[in-house]
């Protein structure tokens, strides 16, 4: 088992067009470092100065990791991680 990571369209240039990739790690930070091995360049699109980039939202099993422990949030096999661009919306 591994951790499933959903990739937004804009980052699929790093994943050969794949919508979903898998990776490993004990935290989001380790997971992103692991993704970098197979998908070079992806990590710096997500992380900046040791934190998530401002307009990048990362969800662990649908919950925003900024309200968990940020990139230090623990992850485990079988988890699902979704990366999305920040958007406006919702009944505006």
């Amino acid at each position: 088992m591994a951790i499933e990571v959903r990739i937004p369209t804009i980052l699929r240039t790093h994943t050969d067009g794949q919508k979903v990739v898998t990776g490993e790690g004990k935290t989001i930070e380790e997971l992103f470092a692991d993704l970098e091995v197979n998908h070079p360049g992806i990590r710096e699109r997500l992380v900046d100065d040791g934190g998530l980039r401002r307009f990048v939202n990362v969800y662990l099993n649908d919950e925003d990791v900024r309200f968990l422990e940020g990139i230090a949030t623990p992850v485990k096999d079988g988890d699902s991680v979704t990366i999305l661009p920040a958007v406006a919306g919702g009944m505006g």
Binding site: P8, T9, I10, L11, R45, R53, R54, F55, V56, N57, Y59, D62, E63, D64, R66, F67, T82, L84, P85, A86, V87, A88
Partner: peptide, 22 residues
């Protein structure tokens, strides 16, 4: 959507929230 040109409403203050779900 470009990841560097996202949009966060000016009203948003994440200190008010305790959780956020997609």
């Amino acid at each position: 959507r470009n990841l560097d040109e996202g949009f966060v409403p000016e009203l948003y203050d994440d200190a008010v929230l305790t959780g956020r779900y997609s």
